[in-house]
Amino acid sequence: MSWKDAFQYGKAVLANHGVEAAKDAPRADDALPLGARIGALIKLQQSPFIRANANGSLIAMPDQAEATIRAISHVKLNLSGQLYRYYLSLGDSDDEAEIFLQLFQDEHGAISELMYCTRLTRLIPQTAEEQEAYTGESGFGLGEKTYAIWKEQLADLGYSEAELSAVFGDAENVEYRRDVGAANVDFVTPFNGIETRIDDTAGEHGLKQEIYFMPYVRNLADGLEYLLISTEIVESQNGDSDKRAIHVNFMIGLALEAERVVIQ
């Protein structure tokens, strides 16, 4: 699969200007890990989600045992290996939260991470100072050792008393620890890269954005729950650079074993 810095949907622009070869280009979603393709079905075993929720996880249960891959992205990072996201829900509108399966393939082609992620909430930075904090550009904020989510915040999001009790018990917050870097280091620079998402098999529609992100983790009674905080600066959508935006996504992640995921 050939991932480019520019969108694959640029081929459609070329075709409209008489470059016929662009019309005969192969699928833009070929040769992906686990055999994923846009339109394919992902089947998920429910037991990891049931167990996580029983132990106070914030992960949203899948609506059904299988879902359609609606888009696929590649995140270009200054790391060996490849990071992909298989989107089950795009999150492009306010009433649709992202859901994706995140997969990291090491330099040998082995899958070393497979994580199901659902968006907990989204924040829009209102000032330059807030933006700096959520990109870590000033050496604080995103990338610090811990991050806490407070009961009051989730109550404002509409969580019921029963749901809050399952997550927090008698505590007022839950604390996540940074999942990279030495535990005694106060600040680690967030990962930074370009995410290129394609929304159709021809690569004619999609989104390009710069992202700053940091994974955090906390222990459940049985297993781990991840909090992926990602600041996303949209550069263009469907080739339109006027659709620029910035937001911070708070994604809850649950690591899965590859044998619990079937794509067909």
Rank of each mutant, 00 (worst) to 15 (best):
M1V: 15
W3S: 10
W3G: 05
A6R: 03
A6G: 15
G10H: 08
A15S: 14
E20N: 09
E20I: 13
A21L: 07
K23P: 14
A25W: 02
A25F: 04
A28P: 03
D29Q: 03
A36D: 01
A40S: 14
F49M: 10
R51A: 12
N53V: 13
S57F: 08
A60G: 10
M61Q: 15
P62E: 00
D63H: 10
R70M: 10
A71H: 03
A71S: 13
S73K: 00
H74M: 13
V75K: 05
K76D: 15
L77T: 01
S80Y: 14
Q82L: 09
Y87V: 10
D95L: 05
A97C: 04
E98F: 00
F100W: 07
L101Y: 05
L101C: 05
L103R: 01
Q105Y: 01
A110T: 10
A110M: 11
L123I: 14
I124K: 11
T127E: 08
A128M: 04
E130Y: 09
A133K: 13
T135G: 07
G136I: 04
G139T: 02
G139P: 03
G139N: 06
L142C: 05
G143R: 00
E144W: 05
K145T: 14
Y147H: 05
A148F: 00
Y159C: 04
A166L: 10
G169Y: 09
R177M: 09
A183V: 14
V185F: 03
F191I: 02
G193N: 09
R197Q: 13
D200H: 06
T201W: 09
P215G: 08
Y216C: 02
V217S: 07
A221P: 06
G223T: 03
Y226Q: 03
L228A: 05
I229W: 09
T231F: 04
N238I: 03
D242S: 13
D242K: 12
D242V: 10
K243T: 01
V248S: 04
N249S: 15
N249E: 09
M251C: 04
I252F: 02
A255N: 08
V261P: 11
V261Y: 07
I263S: 04
Q264T: 15
